[in-house]
């Protein structure tokens, strides 16, 4: 039971921080950063410039 409560607390903290981060406006000029990354062709990586080209959807 302690482990469950402890896990839930951590999960809530993470979710809150994630939502706060998502709500923080991106600085000017940084809206299309992902297009700049061509370091590798890993289509499964959200940071990769080929991610969207392969049909991936970014959450933020």
């Amino acid at each position: 039971m302690k482990a469950v409560i402890y896990f839930l607390i951590l999960a809530v903290v993470y979710v809150l921080l994630y939502l706060k981060n998502a709500a923080t406006p991106v600085p000017e000029g940084c809206e299309h950063l992902r297009e700049a990354c061509h370091s590798c062709q890993d289509a499964s990586c959200p940071a990769s410039g080929v991610y969207e080209a392969k049909g991936g959807v970014h959450n933020a």
Partner: peptide, 13 residues
Amino acid sequence: KKNSPSLYKTLGI
């Protein structure tokens, strides 16, 4: 994001 937009531009991705 809030304190250093230039750093975010470099590192954000």
